[in-house]
Amino acid sequence: MARTRLITAVNEALVAEMERDPTLIVFGEDVELAIMGDTRGLVERFGRDRIRNSPICEQTLTGMAVGLASAGFRVVLHLMFNNFIYTGMDAIGNQMAKLRLMTGGQMELPITVIAGYGGGNGNAAQHSDTAYPALMNLGGIQVAVPTSSADAKGLFTTAVRGRTPTFFLEPAGRGGDMGEVPDGEHLVPFGKANVLRTGTDVTLVAIGTMVRPTLTAATALAGEGVSAEVIDPRTLVPFDEDTVLASVARTGRLVVVDEARDRCSAASQIAAVVADRGFATLRAPVRRVTVPDVALPYARNAEAVLIPGPERIAAAVRSVMERQLA
């Protein structure tokens, strides 16, 4: 057990997997200097045949990942910020997400794309999106959203060893929280949510960067006599519907916290699943706590009011505690 930042846990997992599998290749913009931290030290250790700075040309980088994987390699493509998926979208939406199906299963594409997401860093709207809702709707793309250092190591290892294109989304800018990381091999299965706090009155599903403010809100609510269960889904595709539905069956209430914009957010999908499969267990309307349907502005104060924090989350919970379905 060592205590590290999330980004360092990814770095350690990447080193271990590159040691384990000589066909694992890492490329992307500025990966040699490791601007995001997760590829630090790799070029010195593995050389430029294994990790390589690319030109700035996302539509070609994403397509190259498909070609390199087709040629028998495991691929880690670093896209830096998840806003850059928009420039690389053809090979994401039309190739990575589709070719396994379109070739009748012939084409295995073991590709892991790393990208930072989310606001709160004064990066303005072109570097602050939470873009996983777009990825969730493409087809054959898995989406992992680690929140702890241990899960980052475990989910990353699972992503790299898999045979399906996977987006591994890191909280941008801050390097993630500090946390304990298991030594040695550590895999976290996809589609298995983590119940971070048990409770009886309300289920809070918190995605990625929203886990910390949600736990803060849950602690505050406990002081008011509200017992909140907090669930971290860890992966959005596949998504652990059963754990969420079982929790809502006990609590009767659901609040989903998501840094994506409200419209077609991951929270919207989760709310729809519970409305569909868990309607009879609900005792109050489902609430989504999300970013309003605007782009995140640059100024700190203007940005901060839009990103869900403990106060907004707690207020949403209080509103569902007051409301009771007949």
């Binding site: 980088l61 397509g63 070609g67 390199l68 087709s70 040629a71 090979a91």
Partner: peptide
């Protein structure tokens, strides 16, 4: 679409 896929395969 083939430009980048071929380039990636060529790299491999």
């Amino acid at each position: 679409a083939g430009f980048a896929i071929a380039t990636g395969a060529a790299w491999g």
